[in-house]
């Protein structure tokens, strides 16, 4: 169960009051009539799907009904920050402190590692049953 700080209501509320709405900071192509099929398909369907830090849009659907953004770790499920629409995240996957302290699975070399590694106990514990 997430306790989410709504940046408008300034209160931690339970997950059930909110609704996730997918990746944050998506920009609709400025001139949709003149985009290629490639660009339009990318905008409609292709999303980041990181193992680690993810910026996502949520709506406080049974509260103030406003949209806002969350930076969350998709492996540990830890919420690192919430911030209103129009603002940029202060924590990103490139942040070196995040890599170590939050256990984000971002490896060097431009790609992300797959799966549980012996040195990462947090991940191993989650592979239950």
């Amino acid at each position: 169960m997430f306790y989410i700080l709504c940046p408008y209501c300034k209160e931690h509320r339970e997950e059930e009051e909110f609704h996730p709405r997918g990746q944050a900071h998506l920009m609709r192509p400025e001139d949709p009539d003149n985009t290629t099929d490639e660009e339009w398909g990318d905008y409609l369907f292709f999303r980041d799907n990181p193992r680690g830090i993810h910026h996502e849009m949520w709506v406080h659907s049974v509260g103030c009904r406003k949209f806002f953004n969350i930076t969350r770790n998709t492996v540990t499920y830890e919420i690192l920050e919430t911030y209103p629409m129009g603002e940029q995240p202060t924590i990103t996957a490139d942040d070196p402190s995040v890599r170590h302290e939050q256990g984000a699975q971002v490896a060097d070399g431009g790609w992300q590692t797959v799966g549980a590694r012996p040195e990462n106990t947090a991940l191993n514990e989650e592979t239950s049953s």
Partner: peptide, 13 residues
């Protein structure tokens, strides 16, 4: 669950 997750566990709601 409506959000992205790799944790192999789901939410109670």
């Amino acid at each position: 669950d409506g959000y992205l997750g790799y944790g192999q566990r789901g939410s109670y709601p």
